[in-house]
Computed example of a mutant assay.
Amino acid sequence: MTQIRAVSSGTSWQPTRRLQAQRPGAAQPHPAPRRVRDALAPRRVRDALASAGIRRPRMLRGERMELPVDAPTLATERLLLRRHSLRDADDWFALESSPAVTEFLPWPERDRRQSDRHLRDRTRHTRLWQQNDFLALAVERHGRVIGDVSLHLREVPAERRSVEIGWVLHPGHSGRGYATEAARALLGFAFEVVGARRVTAVTDARNIRSLALAERLGFTPVRPAGLAEEFAPSTSPSLSLSWSPSMSLSLSLSREEAERHDPVSALRRALHQQR
């Protein structure tokens, strides 16, 4: 996957233009070299095991944050973000059974029993404390789960703390701003409570909706240092994209950039509604 850095906030990013190379008959981006794929493999395996609730004992997992951060309950104007529950099984199965959802996620096709197991695993991901800890929240609308947002703790030291954010929404509820509303509230939580200095996101480069959402939130894609000759960058002098073998695109958002898009205020409004 691409390493990312922030670039000027004045850059205008238009995902559709950047993705023209993916249309039928167009030139495809160069594949990543073997050494890059090999470097990514351990992280993919580790994340897959973590998603299944298989982790090393905490005593063997390295540095910790000053205090653990537990999953919050956040109320936005239209949504409730809270811990997953086994009572959500029907909604969760409907979500991950949608072809529009699995098309751009590395989730396997699951039957009902497998989906219930996946949900049970998600109910356990409720704390960020050490590197690679994972926290997942259900996105609820009128008592039904319509999506999921998550944080992955990537770097622990306070001066460079970073988390990776994820979002998924049932396509039946798309186009109404719910994903933006949920992700913005979780971004505020990441900066204000977790103490992140930078938040990253990884999305399939063909997922136009996800890219547009990332742009609205202030994320910026850039080319990683040291790989400029081995990936296919865009032609923009101030904005570069880099492609991985899985066609994923990494994006980044700093606290300073986020404040211009106001996620911290979104968090404060959410916490105020809980009082």
Rank of each mutant, 00 (worst) to 15 (best):
6 A>G: 08
7 V>K: 05
11 T>K: 14
17 R>Y: 15
17 R>I: 11
23 R>N: 08
24 P>I: 01
27 A>Q: 07
33 P>L: 05
33 P>D: 07
35 R>E: 10
38 D>N: 03
40 L>Y: 15
40 L>P: 12
41 A>S: 11
43 R>G: 09
46 R>Q: 14
48 A>E: 11
49 L>M: 07
54 I>R: 08
55 R>L: 12
56 R>Y: 13
61 R>N: 14
67 L>N: 12
69 V>E: 15
72 P>A: 00
77 E>G: 10
78 R>P: 13
82 R>E: 05
85 S>V: 02
87 R>W: 08
89 A>Y: 08
90 D>H: 09
97 S>L: 00
100 A>W: 02
101 V>R: 00
103 E>N: 06
109 E>Q: 07
111 D>I: 00
115 S>R: 11
117 R>Q: 04
119 L>T: 00
122 R>N: 09
125 H>F: 10
128 L>I: 10
128 L>Y: 03
128 L>A: 04
132 N>A: 09
133 D>I: 11
135 L>A: 03
135 L>V: 04
136 A>F: 13
136 A>S: 15
150 S>A: 06
151 L>I: 05
154 R>L: 10
154 R>S: 12
155 E>W: 12
155 E>T: 09
162 S>N: 12
163 V>C: 14
163 V>Q: 07
164 E>R: 02
165 I>G: 13
166 G>K: 00
169 L>F: 00
174 S>F: 00
177 G>I: 11
177 G>F: 11
178 Y>A: 02
181 E>P: 10
182 A>T: 06
183 A>R: 02
184 R>H: 10
185 A>H: 03
185 A>M: 09
186 L>S: 06
187 L>S: 04
191 F>E: 04
194 V>A: 06
195 G>N: 01
196 A>Q: 04
197 R>Q: 15
199 V>A: 09
202 V>E: 05
210 S>Q: 01
210 S>C: 12
211 L>M: 15
214 A>Q: 06
215 E>G: 10
220 T>C: 05
222 V>I: 12
223 R>M: 09
223 R>E: 14
229 E>A: 15
232 A>W: 05
232 A>P: 13
233 P>F: 07
237 P>N: 09
238 S>G: 03
241 L>W: 14
250 S>H: 07
250 S>K: 13
265 S>H: 14
270 A>C: 08
